[in-house]
C-alpha cells in the first residue's frame, strides 16, 4: 500500500521543482502523501486498511458471514483451509462406508452390537461433514481477522465414536451367536 508513494517520493526530491510539469508532479506526490497518511490513520484506528484493496463485488461472496469481515488472507492459507475441509469430507465418506459395510455384508457378529456399531459410525459420518463446513467457515473467518485458529469441535467426540464402534465390533465377535 505504501509502495507507490515510497517510489515517487525520492524521485520528487531528486528533481529540482522547476516549471509546471514538476509542480504538477509535486502536487501528485503531496496527494499521494495525504492518501497514505489517511490510510495509515485508518489502519491504526480500525486495525485493517482494506477500503481500497477489496474489489467491488468481492465482499458479496458467499457466505457473507465469512467474506464480509476482515482482510483478504494469504491465498495459500485459504487453499490449505479448503484441503482440510476436503479431508473431513473424505473422513465422513469413509465412516459412512464402514457403517454400511458392517451391516450390508452380513458378518457373523452379534446382530445387536453390529447394528449399534453401524449406527455409531454412520451418525459420526453425518456429523463430520458439519464439522467440515462450519470448521471451514470459522477458520476462514479467523484467517481474515488474523485471529488464532479454532480447534476442530468434533475431533474428540469423533475419536470416542470410532473407539466405541471398535469396542462394539469386538463385543459383537465375542457374543456372536451365528445368526444372519
Amino acid at each position: 500500500m505504501t509502495e507507490p508513494a515510497d517510489e515517487t517520493l525520492p524521485a520528487a526530491g531528486s528533481t529540482p521543482p522547476l516549471g509546471e510539469a514538476s509542480l504538477a508532479q509535486a502536487d501528485t506526490v503531496q496527494v499521494g502523501k495525504v492518501q497514505v497518511g489517511k490510510v495509515q490513520a485508518d489502519a491504526a484506528q480500525a486495525g485493517a486498511a482494506q477500503a481500497d484493496t477489496v474489489q467491488p463485488g468481492l465482499a458479496r461472496r458467499f457466505p457473507r458471514g465469512v467474506y464480509g469481515v476482515g482482510d483478504e488472507p494469504d491465498p495459500r492459507f485459504s487453499l490449505a483451509n479448503e484441503r482440510t475441509f476436503l479431508a473431513w469430507i473424505r473422513t465422513a465418506l469413509a465412516l459412512i462406508a464402514a457403517g454400511v459395510a458392517l451391516e450390508a455384508f452380513g458378518l457373523s457378529l452379534n446382530s445387536g452390537f453390529r447394528l449399534v456399531a453401524a449406527l455409531v459410525l454412520i451418525v459420526a459420518g453425518i456429523l463430520t461433514p458439519l464439522q467440515a463446513w462450519f470448521g471451514w467457515m470459522r477458520t476462514e473467518k479467523a484467517l481474515r481477522q488474523n485471529r488464532p485458529l479454532p480447534a476442530p469441535v468434533v475431533a474428540g467426540p469423533l475419536g470416542v465414536a470410532v473407539v466405541l464402534a471398535g469396542l462394539l465390533v469386538v463385543l459383537g465377535l465375542l457374543f456372536a451367536s451365528g445368526q444372519q
Binding site: 475441509f85 469430507i89 458439519l130 467440515a132
Partner: peptide
C-alpha cells in the same frame, strides 16, 4: 485476492 476463485458454494454442496 484469489479467495474469490474458491467457490464456497461447492463446499456447501459437498457437505
Amino acid at each position: 485476492p484469489t479467495g474469490a476463485r474458491l467457490a464456497s458454494g461447492g463446499l456447501l454442496l459437498a457437505t
